[in-house]
């Protein structure tokens, strides 16, 4: 009886594994991306996933001598699905952030991008003076706090848009809780609403804004460019906490790309400026 039960159990396990367990293919690293965050990852009109992170993933996999598969995943469920082992890594413009580090781990960062406010070119906010060009959050000095407070004064009574569950949203709720906030499922939808005039400003990354700024002249950027603190410590590969070996492999591959200048070249190609780490 026990033997029969065991055999049924094994057969079922094999069936389950055979049917569903793509995870059993040990050599393939499955990398999730969102496909709606230009120029990190997006879809061209032919329906292909393209972008900085798609190129970067291909290069990293070559250097790790691994087979890679890119999986498309909506931003909303991207962390739960990593934990559930739907894929093994996330490369979706995701910043290293304390609250995320409680549930997943990160590789070293591969780009670090400042965050700022985007407004319509015909908005009264254009030309807002800022005493500082750039601010590093985290330990905010009195001078930096003054700049943030000034910005808060400018935005008082207005509505700011962010993408939901992002570091940008975290910044707004931590530093400017008084400002009306609208959260969008994608940044593209936020920009659509900025152009439609439903929000007065969008708080998002310079790298996302750059191609939009280059394409047309209907959007402008105001205020200081911010990094650090709730905005995280740079964009990195998101991994499961227990997969330390995979993290080391990613780190080593990123290091070699920094060392021979390929990462810098790739960043410049996609972002128009080198936002890769120097070491």
């Amino acid at each position: 009886m026990v033997a029969v039960m065991t055999r049924i159990g094994v057969a079922a396990a094999v069936a389950v594994a055979g049917l569903w367990a793509a995870g059993a293919q040990a050599d393939t690293i499955r990398i999730a991306t969102e496909g709606a965050y230009k120029p990190y990852n997006f879809k061209d009109a032919a329906g292909n996933l393209v972008g900085f992170e798609i190129d970067l993933a291909a290069e990293l996999c070559t250097r790790m001598e691994a087979e890679c598969e890119i999986v498309e995943q909506a931003w909303d469920g991207i962390i739960p699905s990593l934990i559930a082992k739907k894929y093994d890594a996330i490369m979706a413009g995701m910043s290293i952030k304390a609250s995320r580090e409680e549930v997943i781990s990160f590789s070293r960062y591969y780009v670090n991008t400042p965050i700022t406010f985007a407004v319509l070119s015909d908005s009264a906010l254009v030309g807002t003076e800022s005493a500082m060009e750039a601010i590093t959050l985290g330990e905010v000095s009195a001078e930096e706090q003054a700049v943030i407070d000034a910005m808060k004064g400018v935005l008082n009574g207005l509505t700011v848009g962010v993408q939901t569950s992002t570091t940008h949203e975290a910044f707004m709720t931590e530093f400017m809780p008084e400002i009306d906030l609208k959260s969008y499922d994608t940044m593209d939808n936020m920009i659509l609403d900025l152009e439609a005039g439903r929000i007065d400003a969008g708080y998002t990354s310079m790298t996302y804004l750059r191609p939009i700024l280059e394409q047309g002249d209907d959007i402008a950027v105001i205020g200081p460019k911010m990094t650090g603190g709730p905005l995280g410590r740079g964009v990195a590969v998101g991994l499961r906490q227990e997969d330390t070996e995979l993290r080391d492999r990613f780190n080593a591959a990123i290091d070699t790309m920094i060392a021979d200048g390929t990462l810098s070249a790739m960043a410049t190609e996609w972002f128009g400026t080198d936002i890769s780490p120097t070491e």
């Binding site: 909303d76 962390i79 739960p80 569950s165 959260s183």
Partner: peptide, 10 residues
């Protein structure tokens, strides 16, 4: 969805 974005426990 907002709560889940902070807790990751859908």
């Amino acid at each position: 969805k907002k709560i889940i974005s902070a807790t990751y426990q859908p």
